[in-house]
């Protein structure tokens, strides 16, 4: 829930409006899970402002991860 995150104020957050209990995606969808983990790590290195929430663009069940571009090494340092 984005509303909870806004109150709790973690240092940095990637947010997906997906069903409860599915923070990394659907069972067996390894491309989706990998993309979410990559985006969390990209945010970890790229966010400069404490408390930033990044809304990820991935749609629930309608996303084609074949076109997903993983972060470059320079974005993860």
């Amino acid at each position: 829930m984005r509303e909870y995150t806004e109150k709790v104020q973690p240092p940095r957050t990637v947010f997906l409006r997906w069903p409860f209990g599915h923070p990394v995606g659907e069972p067996g969808n390894s491309a989706q899970q990998q993309a979410v983990v990559y985006e969390a790590l990209r945010a970890l290195y790229q966010i400069a402002e404490p408390g930033t929430i990044v809304d990820l663009p991935f749609r629930w069940r309608r996303e084609n991860y074949a076109d997903y571009q993983a972060p470059q090494a320079c974005e993860l340092e």
Binding site: F20, G21, H22, P23, V24, E26, Q33, V36, V37
Partner: peptide
């Protein structure tokens, strides 16, 4: 929360395999 999907594939709540692949 409904964890029936997480019981099928715990990586959706605890992404161990995607991280091991990285």
């Amino acid at each position: 929360y409904d964890h029936s999907d997480a019981e099928k594939d715990p990586n959706i709540i605890f992404p161990l395999v995607p991280l091991q692949q990285l």
